[in-house]
C-alpha cells in the first residue's frame, strides 16, 4: 500500500482528507505543522507528500525546500486555498498544485497520476 504524508493545520480538513484518501486505499500519516512533518520524513519512508502552504510557524514553501534537501525523490502535491502561490517559483518544485475544493476528485486524480492507486 502506498503511504502518503499529509500536512494540514486545519483539523477538520485533515480529518476529511485522511478518511477520503484511506478510502482510496492509501496509508495516511497526518502532521499539523511543518516541523513535525520534517521529523516524520527523516524517520519514515513516504511515497507522496501533500502539503498546505499557509500554516503557523514554517510555511509549506519552506517545508518543500527542507524536504528537497532531505529526500529529492518524494513527489509533492501542494494543496492550498491560494491561487497566488503559483507565482512563487519555489512552488514550481512541487509536482502538482491543487486548489482546495470540497470535491476531492482533482486531488485524487493527481495522486493516482503520480503514484498510482
Amino acid at each position: 500500500m502506498k503511504k502518503i504524508l499529509l500536512i494540514e493545520d486545519d483539523l477538520a480538513l485533515s480529518l476529511l482528507y485522511e478518511e477520503e484518501l484511506k478510502n482510496e486505499g492509501y496509508t495516511m500519516v497526518v502532521a499539523h505543522d511543518a516541523d513535525s512533518a520534517l521529523e516524520l520524513v527523516q524517520k519514515e519512508e513516504f511515497d507522496l507528500i501533500i502539503t498546505d502552504i499557509r500554516m503557523p510557524g514554517k510555511d509549506g514553501i519552506e517545508l518543500i525546500a527542507n524536504v528537497m534537501g532531505l529526500r529529492k525523490d518524494i513527489p509533492i502535491i501542494i494543496n492550498t486555498a491560494y491561487q497566488s502561490y503559483k507565482d512563487d517559483f519555489m512552488t514550481w518544485a512541487a509536482d502538482a498544485y491543487v486548489i482546495k475544493s470540497s470535491s476531492l476528485e482533482e486531488l485524487k486524480a493527481k495522486i493516482k497520476e503520480l503514484i498510482g492507486s
Partner: peptide, 21 residues
C-alpha cells in the same frame, strides 16, 4: 478579498467534503 476568500474556503471545503461523504 483574497484573504477573506481563503479564510472562508477552509470551512467551506470541510462542510462540502463531509456532506459529500
Amino acid at each position: 478579498a483574497a484573504f477573506v476568500s481563503h479564510q472562508l474556503r477552509n470551512p467551506i471545503v470541510a462542510i462540502g467534503g463531509f456532506t459529500q461523504q
